[in-house]
Design a protein around this nucleic acid. Sequence first.
DNA 1: CTTGCATGAGACCGATCGGTATCGTTCGGG
DNA 2: CCCGAACGATACCGATCGGTCTCATGCAAG
Lengths: 209, 209
Amino acid sequence: MEGGMVSTERAGRQSRVAKLPPRERILDAAEELFSREGIKAVGVQAIADRAETTKMALYRHFATKDALVEEWLRIVAADYTAAFDRLETAHPDDPRAQILGMARFIADGLPAISHRGCPFINSIAELPDRDHPARQLIEAHKAGQARRLTDQCARARLADPDEAAAEITFLLEGAQVSAQNGSIDHAGERLMRIVEAVLDRRSAADSAP
Amino acid sequence: MEGGMVSTERAGRQSRVAKLPPRERILDAAEELFSREGIKAVGVQAIADRAETTKMALYRHFATKDALVEEWLRIVAADYTAAFDRLETAHPDDPRAQILGMARFIADGLPAISHRGCPFINSIAELPDRDHPARQLIEAHKAGQARRLTDQCARARLADPDEAAAEITFLLEGAQVSAQNGSIDHAGERLMRIVEAVLDRRSAADSAP
DNA sequence: CTTGCATGAGACCGATCGGTATCGTTCGGG
DNA sequence: CCCGAACGATACCGATCGGTCTCATGCAAG
């Protein structure tokens, strides 16, 4: 009835958005809606509508809503991991640049995320059950990131790499929630300056006064 | 109003828990369930059940579920504010002790909220609408805390009080989410050591190398 | 005692939830 | 060419949601 299948053939400028296969459209719609409204607040019908498909099609690709949530979070986590992979290959023997790249990555994302919040932090708030697969996925991802950061701190010759990694993790996570609740202005620029200072301070030189 | 009427007279050993008036029991139940399961995940019937009362009684005291949510968050915010008030009167002319007291307050709360998370951070994730009264309440509370912390940093003679307050805010918020998602062990002890170090470093003395 | 009122208990409402069943259409590969 | 799989639309299911209504009970002040 509505728009559908326009210009089947030459396709000119495809009906809307160069329709991807349904599964991808569903995941895109889920990304948009879950991150904007939250998991519980979004019904499968709304996702199907925004994906320009139907609930039935959704359930042909995902066994349950939880499975879709899990797949969405898996993709988000993979995106983050890929970004950090790129940073490591871009600065192979400069762990300091890798750490600052991570901070920059978060800082640059703050305006976009502002008032919407980090998908992991928001989602974990709606997943109080530690046994839920989606929550375990998030925790595994965060644990992996922490391990990675600790390793970078060690390679950067920072004193007490565990403590340094904890401090930087606190700063990155805290910047995201503070940007979300609006308590800190210019959180991105501040975050960068602070992380740089932490790195400088924890460098080998100044162990004792 | 509250404490009141315990042991009306003989009252024996009151049926269960020295039954408070229904309104207080409802707020206690809401506190327990909202902070453990999340706002959207808890129905009004469940709150009424846990409060050993009925849905009707609940709606006699609160116009809507949102109003109950708002009142709950108002109480939580007031508890935090009261704790910080106490710190200020306990150390009237020692802003450094006030700041460390705040950090200690958060650090001590980490094991309790571990895996459950900060009520504000969790709730804001379920309130994507910035115009929602409950969200505005949270944002106002956080803004007030930030102002207060900035003031303490200034009185502690820290260089760049805004930046110092931002750094400490990041650390406190980040410690809570990291404790929740389990990526950092011993988050409380680490937080205290890190905040102390930040305070030392930002003290007047070491402005230039 | 009697009046008044907050409570307790439970049926009830329309809406929406996650998930399923049915059926006609579309379309690409043998 | 045609057949089977995927897709779109829609109706439907039982459960639960926030919220309302009715009515019986308990209890305290007049």
